[in-house]
Design a protein around this nucleic acid. Structure first.
Lengths: 153, 153
DNA sequence: CAAGATTGAGCTCTCAATCTTG
DNA sequence: CAAGATTGAGAGCTCAATCTTG
């Protein structure tokens, strides 16, 4: 079997790719804006607080946090710097491993998360989830997870 | 009829949203990296060259270009600055309207676009289009276009 | 030396202000 | 004054280099 030559995208494929690219550009900005209004924080900051709130002890290692949120270690250092400056997160040296550091959610951070949550949830529903039919959810999940895995491989 | 109280996301909805968010973070970086390798330009720069190559006279107004690519006018000015510095685009004053300016694709810009095209196409196929079943394309397009329209409304 | 975290330098975007033309 | 484009200032990320600990 010969190698397949590179096929240009069909009309539908083209349209699918462009729609995805457009959503990639616009949606994060829209969600970010609504979050800035609702909770005085960015989408990236909300994500960190959200992951911390779900972690045991409200704490995660910097490196784990960076991996979960798909930013570089340097980027996570700066992000947590800002959250610390706002009093929403505290840094805590790791006892087991002197090289490590934890980011720990504060009460103020949890309160801020709760404050932002309803508006953020409403945004995600209105701009994303509400546009996916119940019956298409499984397919949507499968496609998006495949895309993610493929892109990070 | 009473207002619907805000429902938390179901497990599937949660998973769909997280998969989308993850793809949004990772995919642009992956495509950008492959494009930097293939054509010595960013994904944003490729997009501009691509739109110019499809436009009559290989030219578009700065404001139209900014709208098409969903960046601010200021952002488009900087982006085109870079492309002009590389010789891939030229600026051209608008005759009809002295306030306006065109960005015009150069021969070198078109050549660079052709150079980058195969690798970019391969990336888009491999990381995006290949993960969508033929029969799911219409639904995918519909969902993504709805999300885009909703987010920009 | 390797790993975790941070710091320095630089890039690319944004918002707000400005310049020019209608 | 309104619209199109640019410029100044600043935010937030990246890569590469550094510091500290295992």
């Amino acid at each position: 079997v010969a190698a397949t030559p590179l096929q240009p995208l069909s009309d539908k494929e083209q349209r699918a790719w462009r729609a995805l690219a457009r959503a990639f550009t616009i949606l994060p900005r829209t969600l970010d804006t609504s979050l800035v209004g609702a909770g005085r924080m960015s989408l990236a900051e909300y994500g960190v607080l959200s992951n911390l709130s779900e972690a045991p002890g409200w704490r995660l290692r910097m490196s784990d946090l960076a991996a979960i949120r798909n930013v570089t270690p340097a980027g996570m250092t700066r992000l947590v710097d800002r959250l610390v400056a706002c009093g929403l997160v505290e840094r805590c040296k790791c006892v087991d491993d002197g090289r490590g550091a934890f980011a720990v959610l504060t009460e103020a951070g949890f309160a801020r998360l709760e404050e932002a949550y309803p508006t953020h949830l409403e945004s995600v529903r209105r701009h994303v989830v509400d546009h996916i039919e119940e019956g298409d959810l499984d397919t949507f999940i499968e496609v998006m997870e495949k895309i993610s895995r493929s892109a990070e491989g």
